[in-house]
Design a protein around this nucleic acid. Structure first.
Lengths: 124, 124
DNA sequence: TCATAGTGATTCGAAAATCGAAGCAGGAGG
DNA sequence: CCTCCTGCTTCGATTTTCGAATCACTATGA
């Protein structure tokens, strides 16, 4: 992980140019950060209780540990995560983000209804 | 055009196994779809008015046209987008998704405040 | 001390996703 | 015919992600 003036290599944060937006608008940094694979899923899995590294990996159906490590680093740098004795835990800011994302759950159920009655596969 | 013998799910949809979740839970399909690069950004750029292909590409600071094409196909398959004379337009479901994501804007501004002196501040 | 098992985390070659610039096909106007 | 716009594809290069093995550390127990 190098660093230069390019946004590409750094962890997205508000006020700084990110992928797809040189403006530094906070929401663009958020979209860059959240648009990386597994990022939202990790936050989602942490919404209720702190979780260890390997447990987190298991819950995400064996996502690559290298990617998990990278995501944890990014989310920590963004001050959304911390690590303590019980595992990784959302910060206040992280909890707020998950709350901001929570309407997604209700929306996705509506999506499921309108996309057609569950064609194979359980729901829950 | 894509997916022929893709080892993975094609376009995520609720009720079908997706990356990281074999359960078919709607929210997992949503997280898979939205966790692909540029997906949320595209939705974000379409939240107000229909936009053409090249204009969309310009707004996303010259994202790759091949990826834009792929995303449009995915979002269309997910029934979140349609194309008409004015360009790409969110469906009702797509609008609802953008609304579900809208708390992200307010959150990101708070994130900006807590991460350091606010530099940007615009929304969209 | 040695063995076993748990943890968070790294390594590295392979595979997949994304980039980016060029180009295609079609329509409108000069 | 040419030019300029459009949505969209192609394909080699680059970046990201995968995945299994592995490391370093801690704890337990014989």
């Amino acid at each position: 992980m190098e660093e230069a003036s390019t946004p590409r290599t750094g962890v997205p944060r508000p006020g700084v140019p990110v992928r797809g937006s040189a403006s530094g608008r906070p929401v663009m940094a958020a979209l860059d950060l959240l648009g990386r694979r597994w990022t939202m899923r990790i936050l989602w899995e942490l919404r209720q209780a702190p979780t260890g590294f390997r447990e987190l990996q298991r819950r995400c159906e064996r996502m690559s540990s290298s990617v998990l490590s990278t995501r944890i680093e990014e989310l920590s740098a963004a001050r959304l995560l911390t690590l303590d004795d019980d595992g990784y835990r959302l910060t206040r800011l992280g909890q707020d983000l998950v709350e901001a994302l929570s309407p997604l759950d209700a929306w996705s159920r509506r999506w499921a209804e309108e996309t057609g009655p569950a064609t194979g596969g359980g729901s829950g």
